[in-house]
């Protein structure tokens, strides 16, 4: 597992059915681009999060392909439909095969 990776998500606790809710996500990750060199002039190998998805009760909200040009600590903000009470599931896929997950329940209210 890459060092110091911690996903964080900002989602309202409650929403009205039919609302569009704003979701913000941030995951601490170096996003080593594969373009940089170390002190000895050797290329530091690429190590990034290459995909991020958000699903709600099994249906997709957004599916993002990330390239090395995404900044350190990838940040996304987007809007999701809220059709019923349920769980938004967030998944980040690391180049090294690791998968980081986070989930947030949103109630009707």
């Amino acid at each position: 597992m890459a060092k110091g990776v911690k996903p964080r998500v900002k989602v309202p606790k409650k929403a009205a059915v039919g609302d569009a809710i704003t979701i913000k996500t941030l995951i601490s990750h170096k996003m080593e681009s594969g373009q940089r060199k170390d002190g000895d002039g050797n290329v530091i190998p690429r190590s990034i999060i290459n995909r991020f998805t958000c699903d709600f009760n099994g249906q997709n909200v957004i599916d993002v392909t990330l390239e090395p040009a995404i900044s350190t600590n990838p940040y996304f903000e987007f809007e999701a439909q809220f059709p019923e009470a349920g769980e938004y599931k967030f998944t980040w896929y690391d180049d090294d095969g690791d998968v980081y997950e986070e989930a947030k329940q949103v109630a009707v209210g």
Binding site: K6, R8, K10, K24, L26, S28, T72, N73, Y75
Partner: peptide
């Protein structure tokens, strides 16, 4: 604070 990466 969510946008501020210093908070990480």
């Amino acid at each position: 604070d969510f946008e501020n990466q210093g908070m990480i």
